[in-house]
């Protein structure tokens, strides 16, 4: 029920988001444009105003909306997976430094001057995977994850990659602008090409996660119990770490560093529909899409025509939320 409600809210929100922007385009017009495009009706080119609006809708707003939803999906689902994996509600790609790793990988690709767009996600993914694995290894002692170690190694690794990032910015020269613009975390450079890269990554990542929701539920009961109930724990963890790296790096490649989505969304959904990953995964995906779409629409319309980077907003909501969770966890111990 909640899933259905969430899904329809997301669709409605996407429709509303299409109307928001510096140029006023009404619902009716959008409807007309989409209708005509679907049925390949070339009368659209006769009406000049409608044509320019059609360009705005299809080339600017639509890709941006889809991109923000996809990024929200990736961040929320990877946050959820990490929380199951580390058995801790504080885990998220941003806090564990995975986003930083992915960002450095991307910056490195730009810096090395790889022209082809495909190198960007490849570098980003490999660094993200490396970081995830490192944090995982550092935070465990005798095969149990220690919360303090987890957060601290996340902080240390994030700091390390931030330093590397600063260094590469220093070396960047004329590419400086390109890197900074990307890193600030926003959707203003959205286009269909980006979508074509991100889309398969998200599909692959989410489909993969769907295959593992049984295992994720069992991992919540502890490694030993998961094993007793038939999970090949080590193998499953590696696959899940890879999938989260894939989703996180995809998101980071497209929109820079957007924090806290992976933290807030799964937590809220857990409160709403419980910890069973069968429902939690789709709920988190939709919730993540909804949140980022909302924040992005808000960010681009609050002080038109100036845009506030989305990352700023998510951090403003997310950081206090993180502290709240931390306090709650202390209380329960």
């Amino acid at each position: 029920m909640i899933l259905l409600f969430e899904g329809s809210t997301l669709l409605l929100m996407m429709a509303i988001a299409l109307t928001v922007g510096p140029v006023k385009i009404s619902f009716k017009e959008i409807y007309e444009i989409i209708w005509k495009i679907i049925f390949n009706d070339h009368h659209i080119f006769v009406n000049n105003k409608l044509f320019s609006h059609a360009v705005i809708i299809t080339q600017v707003r639509l890709p941006r909306i889809i991109l923000s939803v996809l990024v929200g999906i990736s961040l929320a689902s990877s946050g959820m997976t990490l929380q199951a994996l580390f058995r801790n509600p504080l885990a998220s790609p941003y806090i564990l430094g995975i986003s930083s790793g992915a960002a450095f990988g991307g910056a490195f690709a730009i810096l090395m001057g790889f022209k082809k767009a495909i190198f960007f996600p490849i570098f980003s993914l490999s660094f993200a995977f490396f970081t995830t694995f490192l944090v995982y290894k550092l935070s465990q002692r005798d095969k149990t994850i220690i919360v303090g170690n987890l957060l601290l190694s996340g902080v240390a690794i994030a700091a390390f990659f931030s330093a590397m990032l600063s260094f590469s910015l220093y070396l960047a020269g004329e590419k400086l602008y390109q890197i900074i613009f990307w890193l600030m975390g926003g959707f203003w450079l959205s286009n269909w090409n980006k979508l074509f890269i991100l889309f398969p990554m998200v599909i692959l990542g989410i489909t993969g996660l769907f295959f593992f929701y049984k295992e994720m539920n069992l991992l919540l009961l502890g490694d030993r119990t998961a094993m007793d109930l038939g999970v090949d724990v080590e193998r499953t963890k590696k696959i899940l770490l890879f999938l989260t790296s894939l989703l996180t790096s995809g998101a980071v490649c497209m929109s820079g560093m957007i924090g806290f989505v992976g933290l807030i969304v799964p937590h809220m959904m857990r409160l709403l529909i419980g910890p069973d990953h069968r429902y939690l995964l789709p709920a988190s995906c939709i919730g993540g899409g909804l949140l980022l779409l909302f924040v992005d629409t808000f960010a681009r319309s609050i002080i038109t025509p100036v845009e506030v980077p989305v990352g700023v907003f998510t951090a403003l909501i997310g950081a206090p939320f993180f502290l709240f969770l931390l306090k709650q966890q202390r209380n329960s111990q």
Partner: peptide
């Protein structure tokens, strides 16, 4: 496989900490 073993052996551990 682990799964096959789980079909044959049931385990009740000393303490089950599930805080979800």
């Amino acid at each position: 496989s682990r799964n096959n073993i789980a079909c044959k052996f049931g385990v009740v551990p000393q303490n089950s900490i599930i805080n979800l």
